[in-house]
Amino acid sequence: MKGIDYFAPPRLEEAVSLLRRYGKKAALMAGGTDFLLRLERGLVQPGVIVDLKKIRDLRGIKSNRAGLKIGAATLMDEIASSHLIQTRYGILAKGAAAVGSIQTRNRATLGGNLCNASPAADTASPLIALGGRARIAGAKRVREVPLEEFFLGPGKSCLQPNEILKEIFIPSPVQRSAGSFQRCTRTAMDIALVNCAVFLSLASKGGVVQDIRIVLGAVAPTPVRVQAAEDVLRGKNPDEKTIEEAADCAAAGVRPIDDVRSSASYRRAMVRVLTKRAIEEALREAGGEA
């Protein structure tokens, strides 16, 4: 850890040019709650830390007719306690509220949570379910990537060496839509063994599912959509049997591993339980009535 240099540029362009100047030696940091752990454990050994917190453009929650923009360096607690997000994009607020303690949420940022690319990230599943898109700033331009394509593997995102995640865009939810975020943990304060976000919309009348996204965390190298399970429900007015079929389908469609926190088979069982719960809750919320 000796001889590390530190920059906290006030503008995004400066951060990008620092990345260009230092190349592989440079590491980006936002809240630092995850980065500093890895630094302490020697898992990253950067020569230069580029702190993104001072960049105004990376902060804040803005909404318009098209949808919601959240700056990558926006604090987890700001997201969890934003009235707008709680009411319009509730599953994201719930995901953000599940990240660590209040101490952590007061430092950790949305961008940090996503760029760490942990398969268990509690904001990733809700954002994918909501159809979120990552806006990524490079040297020349800003590109946009659907969040489900953002993650490549544990700790690996699609960010190129000179790129910085700028903001997340979430399209406005359509009429009669709702979601649910579920997680399973060992104790109350815990990383998710499995998380599940469902977001669905119903046809203008009745209980037919028009569109649905089911996203699972911590059961594959990246957060994953289980489209086969979505297909079970799309275009149907689901009864209990259909929901169970979808949950079974989700459980069959994931690739969990055994680790110190849980066995793969328990994770798979929890995928089934959480998916079912999430679909049921989302349907209830979207229909306005159970």
Binding site: G32, L37, D77, G100, S101, Q103, T104, N106
Partner: peptide, 22 residues
């Protein structure tokens, strides 16, 4: 490691773990 909170302080009005801040 930001898990126990023994290092909690208030910085600019926000409760934070000082072990995970440079």
């Amino acid at each position: 490691e930001g898990e126990c909170g023994a290092c909690s302080i208030i910085m600019n009005g926000k409760l934070v773990d000082s072990c995970l801040i440079l």
